Every structure is written in structure tokens, then in C-alpha cells.
Simulated scan of single mutants.
Amino acid sequence: MSLPKTLAEDVARNLVMVAKLLDEDPEQAYGYSRVALRLASRVAAVREAAGFASYAVAKYAEALAEFRAARRMTGSVELWPIMADCERGMGRPERALAMAGEPEVQKLDKAGQVEMRLVAAGARKDMGQADAAVVTLQSPELASNSIQPWTARLRYAYADALLEVGREAEAREWFAKALEADQGGTTNASDRLAELDGVEFTDALDESEDAEQEPQGEEAKAGPAESKDTESKDTESKDTETEDTESKDTESKDTETEDTESKGKDAEESGEQG
């Protein structure tokens, strides 16, 4: 509302494209966010969208700067958990952990507090404190049987943390619980369960391709055999031709010998008559 109508429409179109492409093509979404940022850098929604687009392409320093700007403009704390996760992305888990203990966390709604707990547990793992990560995730929200938007991710993170410390049986149980709550397919809990159970999936398409290739392999094998047969026949033919030639040469030599002997006898007889 603070922008002229035409400019507002141009900025809005770019923000719509950011939201549409953020999951399927984050690089392109990032490009649209930079256009919107050039057009209206003083609008909080633009800075926030630019922050999410930067976060999606792992440009954590840019994302953190945009989130801080949006927070200054609005005074809201809802971006606090993702700001802390940007600190993790920049290789500063200790700062993320410090943010988890700030008063701003108490101002977050339930979803924000769960998100902050996930970030804090991730920071613990980054620092090599796997056991502390398990403890960090233990909470009333984890123990609750009600299914909330964050339930699957919280259970999945807890299962992963348990696996990290070697508690495989418990990890399998919590991966199963995560799968039960994951109605939107936000985690790969089913794959992790299969991996723990030693189940391997085979792509049926690959099998059909292999089956199609097998006859070609037999034909390829038949090729050299036929070639050998042909070579054998050629060799026999050459041998026969050689034998015929030798035979003809021998006959020719024999004929020449007989003619010579005959001429010799005729000459002797002629001499006797003389």
C-alpha cells in the first residue's frame, strides 16, 4: 500500500513468482526476489521474501541480513528461529544456541517454539553434542499424541538424534511415529525405516530395461560364432582351391614329362632307321 499502483503491481507479481517457485526452482525464485528487492527494498514483505529465497539457495549471510531488516521494519519475532538457523548455516552453531536462550523465544507461538527447539538441537549436533541434542528435543510437544503441522518433523528429528547416539531400537520406533504423522510427505521417514530394516527397493523400470537388453546380448554372442563359421568355410574353400591348383599343376607336369619322353623315343627310332 505504500507504493504507487503500477510499481506495487510489478512488485506483487515478482513476489507471487517467488512463492510459486521457492520449492520447485529455488534459483529462479531467488532471481525474482532480487528484482522485487531492487524495486521496493523498503517494504518489509519484500525483504522477508528475499530472505526466504536466499535461504533456499544456501546464501545464509544474505538471508540473515534480509530477515534482520524485515524484523527491524515490523518488530515481529516470528523470524527468530530461521535467523538462528542462518547462523548454523554460516558455521556458527554457538550463536544459534545463544539465540535459543533469548527472551524473544518466549514471544513465539507454539509452532515457533518447536521450530526453535529443532534449530537448537541441530546446533548441538553441529557442535558434536549428540546426547544433548536428544535431551533438547524431549518436550511436551514430542510426548503429545495430537498431530500438529510440526509433529512429523519433531519426531523425525528425535529419531535421527537417537540413531546418532546408537539407540537404534528407539530410533526405529520414532521414525515409525514420524511416518504416522507425516501426512504431507515432508520427511523421508519411510526410507529411514526401510534402511533400518534392511529393505532394498528395486526399480521395476530398470528390470524391464535389463530384460530388453538380454536378447541383444545373445545376438551379440551369436555374431562372433557365425563369423568363426564363415571363416572356417572360407578356409575350407581356400584349401580346396589350393588342392585343385596343386593337382592341376601336377597333371600338367606329368603331361609335359610324357611328351618329352615320347619325343625322345621318336628321335631314337629315326636314328636307327637312318
Rank of each mutant, 00 (worst) to 15 (best):
T136C: 11
A130G: 07
A44M: 03
T186Q: 13
E164P: 05
D131M: 13
M99W: 02
M90H: 01
E256M: 04
E226W: 10
L21E: 08
G112L: 01
A70F: 01
E241T: 14
E164L: 14
G31F: 01
V11D: 01
A111C: 02
A222R: 15
Q28H: 02
P93V: 02
A194C: 00
S208M: 14
T255H: 08
L7W: 00
W174H: 15
F175N: 02
E218Y: 15
F52K: 14
K238M: 07
M90F: 05
A70V: 14
M83Y: 06
D160W: 12
V11N: 05
S54E: 05
K265H: 06
L163R: 14
P103I: 02
E87M: 14
E226M: 10
E214W: 04
T186H: 01
P81D: 00
A120G: 03
M17V: 03
A98Q: 11
A132I: 09
G31R: 12
E269S: 15
A63Q: 05
P103Q: 04
F67R: 08
E62V: 11
K248D: 06
K248Y: 03
E219H: 08
D10M: 13
K110P: 00
K263Q: 10
P215Y: 02
I147T: 13
M90I: 01
A49M: 07
W174F: 13
A50L: 07
L142K: 00
I82S: 05
F67Y: 09
Y30N: 08
